[in-house]
Design a protein around this nucleic acid. Sequence first.
DNA 1: CATCGGCGAGAACGGTCGTTCTCACTTCAC
DNA 2: GTGAAGTGAGAACGACCGTTCTCGCCGATG
Lengths: 189, 189
Amino acid sequence: MEQEDPRTRILDAAEELFYGQGVQAVGMDAVRAASGMTLRRVYQHFPSKNDLVEAYLQRRDGRWRASLAVHVARTGGTPREQLLSVFDWLGRWFAEPGFRGCAFVNSFGELGATTPAVAAAARHHKEEFAGYLAGLVEAVGAPPETAVHLTLLAEGAITAAAIHGDPGAAADAKEAARLLLDAALAART
Amino acid sequence: MEQEDPRTRILDAAEELFYGQGVQAVGMDAVRAASGMTLRRVYQHFPSKNDLVEAYLQRRDGRWRASLAVHVARTGGTPREQLLSVFDWLGRWFAEPGFRGCAFVNSFGELGATTPAVAAAARHHKEEFAGYLAGLVEAVGAPPETAVHLTLLAEGAITAAAIHGDPGAAADAKEAARLLLDAALAART
DNA sequence: CATCGGCGAGAACGGTCGTTCTCACTTCAC
DNA sequence: GTGAAGTGAGAACGACCGTTCTCGCCGATG
């Protein structure tokens, strides 16, 4: 079980380092050391650091959204409960050791101006998340603007939790989401 | 009028470069060139790049919050109008050319894990902003949780506007803030 | 006038980074 | 057994970065 396939081992090491310290602060040699491979092998799988960064972001996007979707689906209950459970999932994420905010926001700030692929990855990730939330909001029967509002709350909670190191931002955002949801549903004709 | 004092010229150049491209992507020589000074003079005023980065963040924090406060104060009107005008100010900021999100969030993602002073600057900036918003919320007569909720909305709007390049996030956040404010005031006994 | 301190311009230094190369060694085909 | 191809370990390379140093020049002081 120690012998995952090489690509995965490299990506695991890269993800931990890139997310934990920032992309530019991590050299390829650190990725090599953490993955327990030789530099040649690393470059065989990812011809450049940029390729590795893009793969890191792409894999993280898929995993992040899948984990959220699984959590919401397993929650069951009413559509409303499912929607609000998004914020519970965020709270658990915030409380994980080493949590340091959204990898895509961080990468965007660091490389977005220089590397268009990173900016595109961040945009894609945020759009997918907003779209997912929109689906949940629609199931509740609230208007689309509500989805936008809840997306902003979730986004803000991620940033606030990262900078203040306080996972409680998720509960705050959940409470605000509840209020917005109630207001939107009450305004229905 | 071209002859500002050297410290200001250096900080002006550093701010534009650091904010626009990320701190690590900008070398000291680029700061020297953009400020039109010699490297020796730059190091006379800021003994290391870290010092320059900290000064950049500190000055930007002061200016940012002062600009916001001035806008709100000039808005006048009811406390409620003043509070909501925060989001108008955000919208104008988002629409500025070269807007690339919150300098403190960006720096935090890039250097927060490595440079404690940067993490502290980001924390301080966000705490001051949250405190300012709390004051406006109190003047409206809404409970303190409402201030937390509006802070999350503003934070989320900044991130969303940066990544999607869409200043409209400010208007979305303002609409959500209005709803939250109404809900909070209606719940008053 | 002589001397001294500070200046601008840029070279130099030590270190690091992304990437490639060397080289001895193994493995396998024939 | 012999050649080819691939591997691991790490050195090497070229570029750049933060920082310091050199050096020729200028202006002020006595």
